[in-house]
Amino acid sequence: MTLLRIDASIQGPRSASSALADLVVDEFTAHRSGEQIRTRHLGVDPLPSELWATAVGAGFTPEADRTPEQADAVARVRELADELASADAVVLALPLYNWGVSQHVKTWIDLVIAGAPQGAQLLDGTPTVLIVTRGGAYGPGTPKEGWDHSIDYLRRIVGEVWGADLTVIERELTLARVNPAMAGLVELADTMKESAEQAAREAGRTLADRVQREADAA
């Protein structure tokens, strides 16, 4: 059994999304210590954005006529799609940047789609934990309501296009303790952090329980 973890933060050890992903994976491995964990960090090792155009162009080129660069691009995007499709469980830690998904995440999504058969649900029924963190607040009644262009897009791609059995964990106000203008929101931010951490631990246990049930049924 393989759990695939994808991170995308550019914050290194300060990353709120990676910290929540750590809790999910730690709880999972506490119950399923023998399972394989595969990782890809899009923020640390970003995928080349130019690969997408090359791979798409190769799709309209007969295989025998493809350049070496096109052949390499096709192989790489297929590898990314296969990596996702072969996972038995997935954890995605994808923070919001500039009101949307980061360039790293968008590139990854485009490359995966380019490497998959058209219309393929790569995560058909696969238990998937999607973690989204936001530095500010974007809920109803907030000044930035409607500015979050990340979560609906990710739900559409991961849950509908790829068909994942999706669990979403969201945490807002992650910058409350570092932005003086948000000092009045620290208490609320701490409550949100605690709730997200609890949800992450529960998600890790749920993944482990599901793997155990599937193993027992095999």
Rank of each mutant, 00 (worst) to 15 (best):
E35T: 07
I37W: 03
I37V: 15
H41Q: 13
P46N: 03
L47D: 06
P48W: 11
T54G: 00
G57N: 15
P62T: 03
E63C: 01
A64I: 10
R76I: 06
R78D: 07
S86Q: 14
A89C: 05
A89H: 12
V90Q: 11
V90T: 12
L92H: 10
L94A: 01
L94P: 08
Y97L: 12
N98F: 01
N98V: 00
N98E: 00
W99M: 13
W108L: 12
A114G: 12
Q118N: 11
G119P: 07
G119Y: 06
G119F: 10
A120T: 09
L122E: 03
L122A: 07
T126F: 02
L130V: 11
I131E: 03
I131V: 15
I131L: 14
V132H: 12
G136C: 03
Y138F: 14
Y138T: 14
T142A: 06
K144L: 14
K144F: 14
G146A: 12
S150E: 14
I151W: 06
L154Y: 06
L154W: 06
I157E: 02
I157A: 03
G159R: 04
V161K: 08
W162A: 07
G163L: 07
D165M: 00
T167F: 02
V168S: 10
V168D: 10
I169S: 10
